[in-house]
Design a protein around this nucleic acid. Structure first.
Lengths: 148, 148
DNA sequence: CTAAATGCAAATGCTTTGCAATTCC
DNA sequence: GGAATTGCAAAGCATTTGCATTTAG
């Protein structure tokens, strides 16, 4: 069974790059988080485990993780980029609550299929897609009803 | 018939804000462009018509155009934000070519309907959504085949 | 009149980069 | 051994903001 580390090592080797302790730490941490993360959050967590790791290294490593197909940019919110795992995590789309910031992940096969059909119609070869629906979650709708 | 200017004036009045020459110029220019635009492009064009208009005013005006429901953030590419018209332009989604940067707009009713169903399932009240599919357009696929 | 808007320049905040020292292979 | 990597601090860059001046209503 191929692990994320195998995949990352393969990618690095192929590119003539090194598997350093810093890269290992970042990889491990990213894959032990089980939700979206941004650079600041990741930096905070990593600093607790390694007092010397720098933001620069994180900024330099994330593109490698993306290029090796392990993570991807999931969404942006107020100028912050949030990443999510791809490896071992099936593709999904997002519902974003404007009220409380909650993120609901969902997967809908028909939606996926329909997108492929649209691409076909335009002779377009899809590589990846992102669907984000902004609105109000159940709780926030309830809050709004109660306060009005 | 209500124009974009009417809509903008109404919004400003409601908020106790002013309809200035700068805001008028920006509004007019944005609505005479018929494609996505970013701040730099807009600034370049506006400067030709008004030597003194500043980036700051553009940055301060765009949120007003968004809040009044005239435009919206369409997509982001390499840290640049691109806007598009809403007023007078029916909702659509995007195919983005990784090769040449081409943007294809499309609208698919079934896709829209399906999204509403997903929201319903989660008790989520959708306000707006964005679907972007990245991949390769016809021409770029052809180029890739020929060069390999 | 006067609150709001403007242009400018300085500040902000995220991200990138140059560099000297270090380390993986 | 030597190219790649690191941390640091400085630089970049899009965007925001403080302020003195101007202006719409």
């Amino acid at each position: 069974m191929i692990t994320e580390e195998d995949k990352f090592r393969d990618y690095l080797k192929k590119k003539g790059l090194k598997f350093t302790p810093e890269r290992e730490l970042i990889l491990k941490e990213v894959f032990s988080l089980h939700k979206h993360f941004d650079v600041e959050a990741l930096f905070g967590i990593l600093r607790k485990k390694d007092r010397t790791i720098s933001r620069a290294t994180i900024y330099r490593t994330l593109p490698l993780l993306i290029e090796s197909g392990l993570i991807r940019e999931a969404l942006r919110c107020r100028d912050r980029v949030y990443y999510e795992l791809i490896f071992g995590h099936p593709h999904h789309d997002h519902l974003l609550c404007i009220g409380c910031g909650k993120v609901i992940e969902f997967r809908n096969e028909r939606l996926e299929k329909l997108q492929k059909e649209v691409c076909k119609k335009y002779g377009f070869k899809p590589i990846e897609h992102r669907l984000g629906i902004k609105g109000y979650c159940k709780k926030c709708q309830k809050k709004m009803r109660e306060s009005s």
